[in-house]
Design a protein around this nucleic acid. Sequence first.
DNA 1: TATTGTTATACTCTATAACTATA
DNA 2: TATAGTTATAGAGTATAACAATA
Lengths: 157, 157
Amino acid sequence: MPVPAELPPVGAAFLLTQLGTHAAMKFAERVSALDLTPPQVGVLRMIAGQPGLSQQNLAERLGMLPSKVVAFVDELEGRSLVTRTRSTRDRRVYELTLTEEGTELMAEIRSVAAEHEADFCRALTPDEHAQLRALLTRVAESHDLTPGVHPGYRIIR
Amino acid sequence: MPVPAELPPVGAAFLLTQLGTHAAMKFAERVSALDLTPPQVGVLRMIAGQPGLSQQNLAERLGMLPSKVVAFVDELEGRSLVTRTRSTRDRRVYELTLTEEGTELMAEIRSVAAEHEADFCRALTPDEHAQLRALLTRVAESHDLTPGVHPGYRIIR
DNA sequence: TATTGTTATACTCTATAACTATA
DNA sequence: TATAGTTATAGAGTATAACAATA
């Protein structure tokens, strides 16, 4: 029986890929308790941060296809979390805003995200946690990542 | 026009998700120069580390569906990177090994992975790079992640 | 009867592009 | 003519379960 060869040492980039996927899966589990998926959370967060933006704007900022935005907004509007309001300036565009219910849900999302953060980094001391955040922020900046936007929404060609 | 509300502070867990996806995309770009996808690299790495393992074993270790393994091995065998050998002990199983060509390709993969690692962490000093790796390793261990196995291969139910 | 590898099928997901209404 | 939003469709990808060979 052949002896297993040694696997190459694991680098930071691979650990990031592995942990990032794991973190995304755990976050998906948590927000599923609110009957939401991570992309829906992304949409709600963007509308919360830029109230009144159009579906085109939303698509562009999240790197989503406009046709996909329609489906998301349909769903969220049907659940009374988001409203479409015809713009008075240009009647082709809808201005998106959170309803009161949507705003309340955003508060719950923030609470869930805080729990997720604390649990995910539970192995670290507060100091180490801050160090990690600082190092990751530097790396993210060096790669020009848009703060708060998951690159998975992006259109890959 | 409404003033944009402030976005909540970005935590380490979200940075990990964001950076992890970005790292995976960059790695995919790099290995595409070798005409490989990241899951194919995962399969090759596993066979390199455990020569002679069966397709069932491979599926189990990578968390892949056995029917998917068939397609991967078909492709890699067709490219003369991997060989299927009937086990003499149990003629139902195939023993998977890398060909000489496959072994050479693995060396190139390791070289590409090293470049990827260096480029991805280029914003950090060697000390910081080591710190980051140490912190990520601790977090990964605290979540019982299998070293070297991407959780994206896993079956989600 | 159980297990390995394989194949076929049904299902989901998603990108593309056609369509409407407004400009 | 160009753009915002919508819808329909075709293509890719994938999980499930049926199947053949061997145990």
